[in-house]
Design a protein around this nucleic acid. Structure first.
Length: 495
RNA sequence: GCCCCCAUCGUCUAGUGGACUAGGACGCGGCCCUUUCAAGGCCACGACCGGGGUUCGAAUCCCCGUGGGGGCACCA
């Protein structure tokens, strides 16, 4: 990989939501910049003002910040190459639009949308292979053009695509992409409202902002030759182009549809970065997950951002489409949760408890965290495993208090015995309480699963919980005995 | 319809003509550990899309199919 400082960019349009594919382009771009000591830039492509969605820019920045891959330059962070919003760069595009017309690589087109529409319909009726601009204004007399412009007639500017030969565009992971020019079109590069389309704006900006590596999704491949031709028309150097493939639905058959997105949501997943936080995912896990969709790492695939920077290489990006695998998200999330320090994890799960209306004393939290860390797939799982630590009372399902293979009466007997043993101890810490309970199990003839199962449900209110004795130690003698007493009452009523 | 991109276990991938009995990870199944659930350890199952070439030799190179995907706007 080129080691001179790279300048990369993420250029989303503020029209929709910030999803996986955006994040993945951002990550790879960020990685290239960090790896080479360069800069990662966020540029807002808002030239289509009809589609502008208020607040979309903020979501993008918030998502990037959450992931920990904030841009070095952006409309919000500033920078030497601003403005970073295309609608604020009008004059720059106008300058280059004039230049490209003057040098003969583009021309004004007076065709109205109505005429274009009619033209297309006619072409469709004739079943042409590819509907495209018929070149009417390309053949206009220069004096005529000047006259019509002077008369105030509205016009767009079209790029004068070579009509013969072919264009070779080089993608770093796909190699040369050769397109015969006869399949290309005279694309509109400046709208009649004076604002450029993506084709001109992006090329001009990438040049002006000195972007060295352009990562954009594969949807851009069809217009890739156009972009290369525009660059050549200006006589500029090309950046390194990389087109990572689109992301497929979990089955790998077809791309993510609205329906798939909704289905993911129902399963507790999301393709929108802003929603992942609320779903209990941590940036470290999400990042690791995203990184591996299209980046070939042979082994040791659990990585922190720093490790990714260390190991990343654009050469290892894959060109084939990747299925979105949420199970893998869970895996990476759980793995990275376990990599967190107890202090860090405690701070991250606390909001879930308080959010559920629980009072969470820190001294209790720090004791609880080590007990549940291995069990968490998502942060919000902490509630399922540990809410009983912070509740006044616990209400076990009566049925659950009856041990496997026993009836209510026998179970009540075990509970009473456990109460007897525990209440005889002044201290029920793990080390003190376990030996006598084990002795009881030995002597009683019941098995450990039965005895401890009853105790677990009585004390935690649930069948699945963190280790019993550690849990009881944290809950404290008084509360444990209260809960046991309550369970005995429930069992007696049952019996 | 036309153009373009892609093609290794169910999924993400390693593989750049001989080191391939095709490696790793997720998931799945089993075992161990264990008071539950996890975590961890071990084991198993599981793939080179098809057909032609090229070559002493092909997962790897070429061609043709097939399948999947993208695009054909004064959207990005």
């Amino acid at each position: 990989m080129n080691t001179k400082p790279a300048r990369t960019r993420l250029a989303p349009s503020p029209t929709g939501r910030f999803h996986l594919a955006n994040a993945r382009n951002a990550l790879y771009s960020y990685l290239i910049a960090r790896k080479t000591g360069g800069q990662f830039i966020l540029r807002i492509e808002d030239t289509d003002q009809k589609r502008f969605v208020p607040g979309a820019e903020e979501v993008i920045v918030r998502s990037l910040d959450w992931l920990g891959i904030s841009p070095d330059e952006s409309p919000f962070h500033g920078g030497q190459y601003g403005p970073y919003r295309q609608t604020e760069r009008r004059e720059i595009y106008q300058h280059y639009a004039r230049q490209i017309v003057e040098t003969g690589y583009a021309y004004p087109c007076f065709c109205t949308p109505e005429r274009l529409d009619k033209m297309r319909k006619e072409q469709e009726a004739q079943k042409v292979d590819r509907v495209r601009y018929d070149g009417l204004c390309r053949r206009l007399d220069p004096d005529d053009v000047a006259r019509r412009i002077a008369a105030g007639e509205k016009y767009t500017i079209r790029f004068k695509m070579p009509q013969e030969g072919s264009t070779v565009a080089h993608d770093h992971i796909r190699g040369d992409i050769v397109t015969e020019n006869k399949y290309l079109d005279d694309y509109v590069i400046v709208r009649s409202d004076g604002l450029p389309t993506y084709h001109l704006a992006a090329i001009v900006d990438d040049h002006e902002m000195q972007i060295t590596h352009v990562l954009r999704s594969a949807e851009w491949i069809p217009t890739f030759p156009l972009h290369v031709q525009i660059i050549r028309a200006f006589g500029w150097d090309e950046p390194v182009w990389v087109h990572p493939s689109i992301l497929l639905k979990p089955s790998g058959k077809g791309k993510m549809s609205k329906r798939d997105t909704a289905a993911a949501m129902e399963d507790g997943y999301s393709i929108f970065i802003e929603e992942l936080d609320g779903l209990g995912y941590i940036p470290e896990g999400v990042l690791n997950w995203i990184a591996l969709m299209g980046w070939g790492v042979a082994e040791d695939d659990v990585m922190t951002l720093d490790q990714m920077v260390e190991r990343f290489n654009v050469d290892n990006l894959t060109p084939s489409p990747a299925a979105t695998n949420f199970q893998k998200l869970d895996h990476f999330n759980g793995t990275h949760i376990r990599l967190l320090t107890n202090e860090d994890l405690s701070a991250r799960i606390k909001p879930y408890f308080t959010g559920a209306g629980l009072d969470v004393p820190n001294e209790t939290l720090v004791k609880v965290t080590p007990l549940i860390r291995e069990r968490l797939v998502t942060l919000d799982d902490c509630l399922a495993f540990a809410r009983f630590f912070f509740q006044e009372k616990v209400e076990p399902n009566p049925e659950d208090l009856i041990a496997k293979g026993l009836d209510a009466k026998q179970s009540a007997g075990i509970a009473r015995k456990a109460y007897e043993i525990l209440s005889s101890l002044s201290d029920i810490s793990h080390a003190v309480a376990e030996p006598p309970m084990r002795e009881f199990v030995e002597a009683s003839g019941f098995n450990a699963g039965q005895v401890f199962g009853i105790l677990r449900v009585a004390v935690t209110g649930q069948k699945v919980s963190p280790p019993l004795f550690e849990s009881m130690e944290i809950i404290g003698r008084t509360t444990v005995l209260e809960r046991l007493q309550n369970a005995i009452g429930v069992l007696e009523k049952l019996g």
